[in-house]
């Protein structure tokens, strides 16, 4: 008997029919008991969680993709970082006007900054989702000190189950990464420190969606 045979022999006999109906019935209970985390405006819910005290990432809203390089330059200047950026090798990002910066399509072990685009995001947890591919090296999300992420507002889904449904409809990548904030550790006396092994800073460039209304002007008092 192989180890496999022995383990299966020790398990109760599998039922004649596959337990799909029961598995589906379990999932049918989910919508009624999810944490009430997503309001009618998914983009607002996502941003609130992303930049809230727990995840503590930063974000800039942009109207169009053409504004991405300027927003990256502004971030680098604000954090006194050099012009080198590891730029994810996708056509959509590589063809933008990066003048003033020196982008490269690979990533080094001590890379200061990487810029890459999330496939989509989940409003419930403010998670950014990356799918490994020829154009998305997994390490772009783990090696840099500053991780700048481009996200289209239209690509925000409300719940984790929506992410699961998106994935069920296409072939699985080698790595499906849900990134929820910068790397952190509480391993020394429970004290939270950012930048354990992965990025210490996470900055999101959110493209499109309904832009926030300008701050209301004080009404003229007659």
């Amino acid at each position: 008997m192989t180890a496999r045979d022995d383990i299966f022999a020790a398990l109760p006999r599998a039922a004649g029919t596959a337990p799909h109906a029961e598995a589906a019935a379990l999932l049918a209970r989910v919508p009624a008991l999810r944490p009430a985390r997503v309001g009618p405006d998914q983009v607002a819910s996502f941003l609130e969680r992303l930049t809230g005290p727990v995840i503590a990432a930063t974000a800039t809203r942009l109207a169009t993709r053409a504004e991405i390089p300027a927003a990256v330059r502004a971030y680098l200047a604000a954090n006194t970082l050099g012009p080198q950026i590891a730029l994810q090798p996708t056509q959509a990002l590589q063809t933008l006007d990066w003048s003033g910066l020196t982008p490269h399509p690979t990533i080094a072990v001590d890379e200061p900054v990487s810029v890459c685009e999330a496939d989509y995001a989940v409003a419930e947890t403010a998670s950014l989702v990356f799918r490994s591919s020829p154009h998305m090296p997994t390490l772009f999300a783990f090696l840099p000190l500053h991780h700048i992420v481009v996200l289209e507002a239209a690509r925000i889904v409300p719940w984790l189950e929506d992410a699961a449904a998106l994935e069920a409809a296409r072939p699985a990548p080698r790595n499906l990464n849900f990134v929820t904030g910068a790397s952190g550790t509480t391993d020394i006396e429970g004290t939270l420190v950012r930048g354990a092994h992965g990025p210490a800073h996470l900055h999101v460039l959110l493209i499109g969606g309904q832009m926030p209304a300008p701050a209301p002007q004080p009404a003229n008092v007659p």
Partner: peptide, 19 residues
């Protein structure tokens, strides 16, 4: 609500994958 990094690993790298 979720750990910073939640990853599903499926199979080895695909033929053309970057890493």
């Amino acid at each position: 609500e979720l750990t910073q990094y939640t990853t599903f690993h499926c199979g080895p790298k695909r033929a053309d994958d970057a890493d």
